[in-house]
């Protein structure tokens, strides 16, 4: 089992490293990630959402629906814990 997991881990790592070969260097400002969608958040967040913190404006506004999902995740987890751990009332 241990050897099997080791093999799987090494294989996964190999795939990951293979993918890394084509990745941009760390902190490179010219990556597509920084150029395609996110510039609009930085440049227009203030006028569109009136929030200083761009992360907040994205979280609460541009991608607010994800945050609703996030809240739901927490709610689900809470309900899940109650459902799992709640004991039957003694009769």
């Amino acid at each position: 089992m241990r050897i099997l997991s080791l093999i799987i881990v090494i294989l996964t790592a190999a795939v990951l490293i293979y993918g890394t070969l084509d990745m941009p260097d760390c902190a490179n400002p010219d990556t597509p990630a920084s150029q395609h969608v996110s510039p609009r958040y930085v440049t227009r967040a203030m006028e569109e959402t009136a929030t200083h913190n761009i992360v907040t404006s994205v979280l609460g506004d541009y991608r607010g629906y994800d945050t609703l999902g996030e809240t739901t995740v927490i709610f689900s987890a809470g309900m899940a814990c109650i459902l799992i751990l709640r004991k039957r009332r003694r009769q």
Binding site: D66, G69, E70, T72, V73, S76, A77, M79, A80, C81, L83, I84
Partner: peptide, 12 residues
Amino acid sequence: VFLEIASLAGYA
């Protein structure tokens, strides 16, 4: 996100 909602609910 929704995948995780479904999964968490499913686990419970």
